[in-house]
């Protein structure tokens, strides 16, 4: 990250002079259920640049979570390639840390601090216990959970658990932070609060984040660049800029226009997806 940022210092760099940190190139992903083989994404391609708050947006069934799992290394593409800093991804690794939607992503048998030091030490970030402790406390302070460092996760509220997960992800200082609908299971007020805090944290370090959501509003607030995906199978529909939009713009004319534009894009040719899902559930 250091090299690209030096060459980019001063002024806004043009897209050509700077290398994308993550390159997704014509990726098709498939997975098996009990009865079917599902194609989740079909020849999806995009570039993520350093400091991007890159959002994958689409309705359920567009393969955005599957795509994130592919980038994390949990699935191999059937065709195409995913490259991180020019190197093809083959396995999960601590250079791409994932923050999940589910609250059970925290290990229940470890305290808040231990969850972070566990990641730091197993992810080969540091071998020194004291240093791991320091880093963990720094990020616990950042997400305002100082008083809960020695608490076990089952005592925390949903929002606090997600804060810990984000702190754990950021403490690893990954090349790209992958967030899979991290706020979807939270109540509306907490979600708003968490979005603000995430933007605040981004202001501090300009980390690169890949964010999956199905909420158009959340995409516009959180994202700087939005990839719109169509469902069945997931294909690229558009790539839009949203770096100029945040909470303050919600309800304003410009914000509402983009919102409407994406909405039309997504629901113009909507396909009923319930059949396959119902068949799989049975």
């Amino acid at each position: 990250m250091a090299k690209t940022q030096n060459s980019a210092a001063g002024g806004k760099p043009a897209a050509e002079t700077i290398e994308p940190i993550l390159n997704v190139d014509g990726v098709t992903l498939q997975y098996k259920t009990k009865e079917h083989l599902i194609t989740a994404t079909y020849r999806v391609g995009f570039d993520v640049f350093p400091a991007d708050r890159f959002v994958l947006l689409g309705p359920s069934g567009c393969g955005k979570s599957t795509l994130l799992k592919g980038i994390a290394g949990y699935m191999k593409p059937v065709e195409g390639a995913i490259r991180l800093k020019g190197r093809e991804i083959s396995d999960p690794g601590p250079d791409r840390v994932m923050v999940f939607q589910e609250f059970d992503q925290l290990l229940p048998w470890k305290t808040v601090k231990q969850n972070i030091t566990f990641a730091l030490r197993n992810g080969k970030k540091t071998d020194n216990a004291a240093e791991a402790d320091d880093i963990a406390m720094e990020y616990i302070n950042k997400v305002k959970l100082t008083g809960f460092a020695d608490t076990y996760p089952h005592m925390l509220s949903g929002g606090m658990k997600q804060r810990v997960a984000i702190a754990r992800g950021m403490a690893m200082e990954p090349d790209v932070l992958l967030m899979d609908e991290p706020f979807a299971a939270l109540d509306a007020l907490t979600r708003l609060q968490m979005q603000k805090e995430l933007l605040q944290l981004w202001e501090d370090t300009h980390f690169t984040v890949l964010f999956v959501t199905h909420s158009i509003e959340e995409a516009l607030i959180v994202g700087s660049r939005i990839l719109v995906l169509s469902p069945h199978p997931g294909q690229v529909k558009a790539e839009l800029n949203a770096h100029h939009l945040n909470h303050d713009n919600v309800g304003q004319k410009g914000f509402a226009d983009v919102q409407q534009r994406i909405h039309d894009m997504l629901f113009a040719d909507r396909i009923l997806e319930d059949e396959i899902q119902a068949a799989d559930r049975a």
């Binding site: 949990y74 601590p94 589910e102 290990l107």
Partner: peptide
């Protein structure tokens, strides 16, 4: 849970270490 498995692999746990540090406590 699938999530906990993915978390373990995300931080590079493999083989016996994966079993000892993740699967056993999670299934305890």
């Amino acid at each position: 849970s699938e999530t906990q498995r993915m978390v373990g692999r995300n931080y590079g746990l493999k083989g016996l270490i994966y079993v000892g540090k993740l699967l056993i406590p999670a299934a305890f």
